[in-house]
Amino acid sequence: MKVNGRQIVLLLYLGFLLLPIYWLVNMSFQTTEEILGTFSLVPEKFTLANYRMIFTDSSWYMGYINSIKYVLLNTVISLSVALPAAYAFSRFRFLGDKHMFFWLLTNRMSPPAVFLLPFFNFYQTVGLFDTHIAVALAHCLFNVPLAVWILEGFMSGIPREIDETAFIDGYSFPRFFFTIFIPLVKAGIGVTAFFCFMFSWVELLLARTLTTVNAKPIAATMTRTISAAGMDWGGLAAAGVLTMIPGAIVIWFVRNYMAKGFALGRV
């Protein structure tokens, strides 16, 4: 294998990418005393105590379960409302279609910090405060526009003749949509699911504002540790490493389609 300039650039970049992650993994296998006491490139006293602590303490592992719950809820809601809408945007011209599309995107541009207090009040008023569905619905604000955007690209890449043929053959719209069209945009659904999962998983501000105990996400559990006296760096590092795993699993499933969605269709 010959090594050329391009590969060197790529390797350097991947090194830059992986070093901070390596440092986190390295720390997660150390005791807090070792982390703070000595500078070591590999754990001197290799320990799994940090991970054991997380898997045995319910205030820690419930954080992961809560996060996964609302992330999955959000992905399902985002996909099920975005699929018909993306179809409408890719196939039809209708009154106010461009305005609607733009309005959806503007919701992605509103800084979450703007909405914190009103969200808190609003969800408390409607009685959804501290539930998984509240976070899932709040995250729809930035995930649904993105989902419509990506799916519309995939759907525009599918020739309209397929729709026309199906309707001539006597398919009703729902039957056509579910049995013919959805299987055709499978890849797009996978990619969209990945992006919804990703943005909902990493978001902290809204999730933390809308929950206290029952639906508290893992990211918020970690901030609690940060503020506690005598920071538990080892536990924090182990928790951080574990937050990467669900996403990495999802990405493995969509890796071959991940990049394709955006290249299709119009912008």
Binding site: M222, M244, I251
Partner: peptide, 9 residues
């Protein structure tokens, strides 16, 4: 994709 999947805090 790894850095993208890490919660922001």
């Amino acid at each position: 994709a790894l850095p993208l999947l890490i919660p922001w805090n």
